[in-house]
């Protein structure tokens, strides 16, 4: 897909804490609609890398360009609206499903309409959950809500940090399929962290393998995982 525009570009992206380099000089281009899987063993810096992409942490060197703009010139709240994130555990806010879905829009003074909320819920396979209390959801349901909540912000890039690894086997497959189909139908650009190489192979178009914060392999799924 070399002709598609680059949406996200990291430029010598580095984050050190003390004298440890959690993310070490990573330069990568992610084109529109591309699905990049970031793989590597536990502690290799996958989450640290992802947290730099929506600027939850500050790079100590290098930067990220979002649609060609250095992201330090974009107000953080605006950047994070465009670059959404779903984490391993769904941190839902106390209240109803509807309140959770409307959280992002509400930050900008917009109200998420009931119709839109219901559409999102149907999309994540939970129609009729609108006024449920989030305290009574199962792990898989909570993760679906957190995906819908991220989508309510209409992001252009979606970051996923091991989105299925906290789920039981049955909901894992469902949530993986859900993410996969949503990303394709909305042509979202996506970066997913996973320690599950098979999952990366099922979902991604490109793979980047980290070790000690560095890229040790990068390329298409075929090149990196089936070599």
């Amino acid at each position: 897909m070399p002709d598609l525009p680059v949406v996200l570009r990291t430029d010598h992206l580095t984050r050190s804490v003390g004298d440890r380099r959690l993310v070490d000089n990573i330069t990568v281009e992610i084109r529109s609609g591309e699905f990049l899987a970031v793989v590597g063993s536990s502690g290799s810096g996958k989450s640290s890398f992802l947290r730099l992409l929506n600027r939850l942490d500050e790079p100590t060197a290098g930067t990220v360009l979002l649609e060609g703009v250095d992201y330090r010139q974009i107000p953080p709240c605006e950047l994070r609206r465009k670059v959404g994130m779903v984490t391993q555990r769904a941190f839902l806010f106390p209240g109803t499903v509807h309140e959770n879905l409307g959280f992002g829009p509400r930050q900008r003074g917009e109200e998420l309409s009931v119709a839109l909320a219901q559409e999102l819920l149907t999309r994540v396979g939970l129609p009729g959950y609108l006024s449920r209390d989030v305290a009574n959801l199962s792990g898989g349901e909570a993760q679906r809500i957190s995906i819908a909540r991220a989508l309510a912000n209409t992001p252009t890039v979606l970051l996923l940090d091991e989105p299925t690894s906290a789920l039981d086997e049955a909901s894992k497959i469902g949530v993986e399929d859900l993410i996969h189909s949503i990303i394709r139908e909305r042509s979202l650009t996506c970066v997913m962290v996973t320690h599950d190489v098979a999952q990366a192979a099922r979902m991604a178009t490109g793979v980047m393998m980290l070790e000690g914060g560095r890229v040790i392999k990068a390329g298409s799924v075929k090149e990196v995982l089936h070599a």
Binding site: N54, P76, R80, F91, F93, F103, A150
Partner: peptide, 10 residues
Amino acid sequence: GEIETALALG
């Protein structure tokens, strides 16, 4: 987790 989730949602 909740605080950073809120930040990540803008």
